[in-house]
Amino acid sequence: MPDPIHQFEIKRIVPLDLFGLDATFTNSALFMLLAVVLIAGFLIFSMQGRSLVPTRLQSLAEMLYEFVANMVRDTMGGHSHDDGHGHSHEHGYMKFFPLVFTIFIFILTLNMLGMIPGFFTSTSHLAVTAGLALLVFVTVLIVGFAKNGLGFLNLFVPSGVPIYVLPLVVAIEIISFLSRPISHSVRLFANMLAGHITLKVFAGFIIMLLGAGGAYGVLSILPLSMATALTALEFLVAFLQAYVFAMLTCMYLNDALHPGH
């Protein structure tokens, strides 16, 4: 049976050393670089015409733009009127749009590249997802304290909680805040990892049953149909996890901008 873990192997292509750190160019780096080239190439090339009536590629790029812009607006734009913020704050959250867009399109492309047989899935490695989650976490901390000062700590003190349970609630809030980068990164990592292992295992069953020959060969139709259905599901998961990651990024950034519950 083929080893389902083999596909996650890191291959060291160009050994590099950066100030004593191991900065080897690996297959993971190759696919991240490929994603950057594809995304930037597509977004810049498709908008070459800048036409008023968009071409197919241009409208795809615009759809992606509007999709993420709406996500950012819907998650972060809702507070502008109810907590007494001034008019100038209303569109302040849009300066995080490039970050959210980059995160979304980067993860989506890495996930989708991973769906091509033989390609490496960079998002199936905890280092990559954790790096992205930590980037969001640190951004939230910096923006939160820069914008609200110590008022950012209000995030841990929900209003309307009786004083005798407040210490407990604050402790829970702090723990849940600190565990955000873990759940944020593990969710994406585990989904990609599990999906790819499952696909590989079912594909392995097909080969095993075919190899057994005779009546077993006929039975291989079962794992084949399973693998086909799972492939469709994995495409959905690849999109959904990119969406969920970007959506959570928006929500965490929203906490940084509006720490009051």
């Binding site: 890191i10 993971s28 991240m32 930037a40 977004l43 810049i44 490039p98 280092a127």
Partner: peptide, 23 residues
């Protein structure tokens, strides 16, 4: 280490390209 470093490089590059040119 190699993945994080290359993640930083590629993500920074992509962020710069998108926020300065594409978006």
């Amino acid at each position: 280490a190699p993945q994080l470093i290359w993640l930083a490089i590629t993500f920074a590059l992509l962020y710069w390209l998108l926020s300065k040119i594409a978006l």
